[in-house]
Nucleic acid binder design. Structure first.
Length: 877
DNA sequence: TTGCGGCCT
DNA sequence: GCCTAAGGCCGCAAC
């Protein structure tokens, strides 16, 4: 079928302008947008291989929308000059490449795209419309695909939408997309919408009634009374917005495919432009575009036959090392990738006798041999029957230990960073298809994906263990990180029960307060603005009302809490704003945010990530359960909705000052060690020794200062930071620091040694050998170098504490299971473990927690634990 | 997407 | 003078 690609010129140019860092050629011309546009264009040509191509641009002249709606004139945002000057340049380059440019007076590019796309579809063509603007999704059709490229950090990812994709993401059909937009409006397009109807309400209404007309036909049934009232009052607005939002598909544009047939893009004129604009990588492309990419030397095989699969598993079981990944997403197994040598890789597809159950069983058997290297074991565990006794090597976790500073550890990352191989990424091969979709729709790409995945897992096994051993991290890997995968998986599976009704009642109370505060703030400031917008808030406070407290951020006035708190005593409205912020935060992030994650089992199953942090801590996402409020009473109350199941209580155990104890141990400072061996109150004893006062005469203020110094030491002390924290002069802060170091000279020697060591070796290490590279120390920039010094001081301390609690987690989780208990570890919050404990097992679990946490490491000071129980998380802290 | 602001250890 | 205390995640606004 004939393929046509249509590009929304201004939109893509705009995307490229913001996505690509500033570039100028030697004439001083800005070129970044043109460069980004061309990169997107070439990527499209490679992926789509279209026979036809055209680009649509807006004209300056007013369009039919302006005659409909005066305010539409305000729509067009002023284009930055640096972008504006690239528009004619872009058109010239396209012309040089023989690519047609479509424009029409009185219409926007959207309308031209809509009209041409529908005409081409009617003529039997397969159309791809490329834009950065999601409004175009309304054009999505059986043979019209909407492509939305995203450029960041030099790489471009393309998201594509057929009608079913639109439905999956927005729930509504492409046509209804217009209806939703008409109701909710769009500030960036100056489409007014109906007041007080947001995205959620609009989507719900359209889902319920089908269209804007449908909504008005059933106005009496419309649910939130506020929305109903607003709809009644603003029917004109809704109808106008619909007309503005709807893209015209019958603009007076002629289209015959021949106008858009792609000829030779690599013309001499185009080459000259690339040269003048100094696009070196594109010049190279022009130079060798004929050269085919060297075909991959690997052999990938698809296995669909039971006997063949049996033989392959048999061989894998007996081989010295196997690369294997169970391809599973959501609840579904799609296949298995296997690799037994450096040449061949296999995709065993779920098909016929090769059922999901069969694959799960064979893979379990294979993984139990103890010679399997995989990638992302935790996400495969729901389908496998494995436990602490089974060692499965996870290459992603190994790669994380070797360099914890990277964002991702996918197979293509491993290929590049460790195997000297360039592998196409999942996004390159499968776009955004799921495994099941890819296997069905793009079987060759899926085979390739599985092949590279298996190959990289296998090859990683040949190299990563050697690297770990060479860097002294083999034990860390085998004894801590690999078993930890099971502990994290168990916590994810277990989840934590949340009282849904109580949570939403809590949210309702907050919302009432928010409404009241909002009105009061509007009255007191004399303008109805969005209090959530730091920009608007800054303007109202510091310009309209003239409060003192000038600029602080890059983009405007700082309205951060510490700034506002200084103003609160003098201006009552500022306190209201701070209160509003508190309520709004608690409602959006916690009441509503957490509510969205309660599963059908009434529990929240957060994800615990093992390869995110630079220091070795784990992180929690979807939702983050490691930042549930505790400091303020109002927020702390949220913890009451986290409850144990019937017949259970919560037992919560946390390490007392673990980082300071780690510091005492690692530094070996004898005075600090002696102090912590006996101390009940570590900050008080620090105050007593540093400020030379008897322990029983330490005032709360002195203790507070000592506590701040202790924090400073752990964070990588700086006089500036300490002075900010205590609101004292930098000189005074420096005096505190010097006094501290005089008192504990071993700490000073230790921290200086860490920095010197890091400078020499390029990394720092924890007690258990975990490394963190510190490249910033080599920087010529003072700020960056200082940052590197703080990293060098903090990471070994924070990281060692992370190692210790990981050891404790593994042992606690193992013992609960191996001793046949029903109690389960369900959360870790950096220095805290939460166990959902069967009432009759309480004493035993207390003993397990206490023993395993204290014994996790043998330090020169005791590891002390505070433990509480309760019928919810609030009580158990 | 980025920046701001805010919650945790 | 630099204008940073360490490590995270997430909602919102504006781009």
């Amino acid at each position: 079928m004939e393929k046509l690609v249509l590009i929304d010129g201004h939109s893509i140019l705009n995307r490229a302008f913001y996505g690509v860092p500033g570039l100028t050629n030697s004439e001083g011309l800005h070129t970044n947008a043109v460069y980004g546009f061309l990169n997107i264009l070439f990527k499209l040509l490679e992926e789509e291989k279209p026979g036809y191509l055209a680009v649509a641009f807006d004209l300056k002249a007013p369009t039919f929308r302006h005659t409909m709606y005066d305010a539409y004139k305000g729509t067009r945002k002023p284009m930055p000059e640096e972008l504006h000057e690239q528009v004619p340049l872009m058109k010239e380059v396209l012309t040089a490449m023989g690519i047609p440019i479509f424009t029409r007076e009185g219409y926007e590019a959207d309308d031209i795209l809509g009209t041409v796309a529908k005409k081409a579809q009617a003529a039997g063509m397969e159309v791809t419309v490329v834009s950065g603007d999601r409004d175009l999704l309304q054009l999505s059709d059986a043979h019209i695909k909407i492509s939305i490229p995203k450029t960041s950090r030099g790489t471009t990812e393309v998201h594509t939408y057929y009608p079913e994709d639109v439905k999956r993401e927005y729930q509504v059909t492409p046509e209804q997309f217009i209806d939703v937009k008409a109701l909710m409006g769009d500030t960036s397009d100056n489409i007014p919408g109906v007041p007080s109807i947001g995205e959620k309400t609009a989507t719900n209404l359209i889902l319920q009634f089908g269209s804007v007309n449908g909504v008005y036909e059933h106005l009496s049934e419309v649910k939130p009374p506020r929305a109903k009232k607003s709809l009644e009052e603003h029917r004109d607005l809704a109808e106008l917005s619909y007309k503005l939002a709807k893209i015209c598909i019958d603009a007076p544009v002629e289209f015959s495919p021949e106008d858009a047939r792609i000829g030779d893009l690599y013309t001499k004129e185009a080459y000259e432009y690339m040269s003048r604009l100094e696009f070196k990588s594109l010049l190279a492309r022009f130079g060798d575009h004929v050269k085919k990419e060297a075909a991959a030397a690997l052999d990938f095989h698809a296995v669909t036959d039971l006997a063949v699969a049996e033989a392959l598993f048999q061989k894998a079981m007996g081989s010295e090392r196997t690369g294997a990944v169970l391809l599973a997403e959501g609840p579904e197994i799609s296949g298995a990738a296997l690799c037994l040598d450096g040449q061949n890789a296999y995709l065993i597809q779920k098909e016929g006798f090769l059922t999901g159950e069969y694959l799960a069983e064979k893979m379990t058997e294979l993984y139990r041999t103890g010679h399997v290297w995989t990638l992302g074991l935790k996400s495969q565990l729901p389908f496998l029957d494995l436990g602490y006794g089974d060692t499965v090597y996870d290459a992603a976790v190994a790669a994380y230990l070797l360099n914890p500073l990277k964002d991702t550890y996918d197979y293509d990352d491993l290929a590049r960073d460790h195997l000297g191989l360039t592998a196409p990424s999942r996004a390159d091969l499968l776009k955004k298809l799921t495994y099941a979709e890819a296997m069905d729709q793009e079987p060759e790409a899926f085979l390739s994906f599985a092949g590279f995945l298996g190959h990289c897992a296998y090859q990683s096994g040949g190299i990563l263990m050697e690297k770990l051993e060479a860097e002294g991290m083999k034990d860390l890997y085998l004894e801590i990180e690999l078993p930890l995968i099971y502990a994290l998986y168990h916590m994810e599976e277990e989840g934590i029960a949340v009282k849904r009704e109580e949570l939403s009642a809590y949210g309702e109370k907050l919302k009432q307060q928010i409404t009241v505060l909002e009105q009061e703030i509007w009255d007191m400031t004399g303008s109805q603005f969005n209090i959530n917008s730091p920009k608007q808030l800054g303007e109202v406070l510091f310009e309209k009302m003239g409060l003192k407290g000038g600029k602080k951020t890059k983009t405007g006035y700082s309205t951060a809490a510490d700034v506002l708190e200084k103003l609160a005593p003098d201006y009552p409205v500022v306190q209201k704003i701070l209160d509003y912020r508190t309520y709004a935060k608690l409602n959006s992030t916690y009441a509503e945010g957490l509510g969205n994650f309660i599963g059908p089992d009434g529990r929240i199953h957060s994800r615990f990530n093992q390869t995110i942090t630079a220091t070795g801590r784990i992180s929690s996402t979807e939702p983050n359960l490691q930042n549930i409020p505790i400091r303020m009473e109002l927020g702390r109350a949220i913890r009451k909705v986290f409850v144990p199941r019937d017949g259970f209580v919560f037992l919560d155990a946390d390490y007392s000052q673990i980082e300071l104890r780690v510091l005492a141990h690692m530094s070996g400072d004898s005075r600090l060690i002696e102090a912590y061996r006996s101390a009940q109150d570590i900050h008080a004893i620090t105050a007593s020794q540093v400020f030379h006062i008897p322990l029983d005469q330490v005032t709360p203020l002195k203790r507070r200062n000592a506590k701040a110094v202790n924090f400073g030491i752990v964070y990588g002390i700086s006089a500036f930071g300490l002075s900010e924290d205590l609101s004292i002069s930098r000189k005074e802060a420096l005096e505190y620091i010097n006094q501290y170091f005089e008192t504990y000279p071993g700490v000073k020697t230790f921290l200086d040694g860490l920095v010197a060591d890091a400078r020499e070796k390029g990394f720092v290490s924890t007690m258990f050998g975990r490394r963190r590279p510190v490249p910033e120390l080599g920087s010529a920039n003072f700020m960056q170098r200082s940052f590197g010094e703080r990293v060098a001081m903090n990471s070994p301390i924070q990281g060692t504490a992370a190692d210790i609690i990981k050891i404790a987690m593994i042992r606690v989780d193992r013992r609960l299971r191996e001793e046949g208990l029903e109690s389960r570890l369900i959360l870790q919050v950096h220095d805290e473990l939460l166990v959902e404990t069967a009432v009759r097992e309480k004493a035993q679990v207390e003993r397990i927690l206490s023993e395993e946490m204290s014994r996790a490491a043998a330090l020169k000071v005791p590891l002390e634990i505070d433990m509480h129980d309760g019928k919810n998380w609030f009580e158990a802290k």
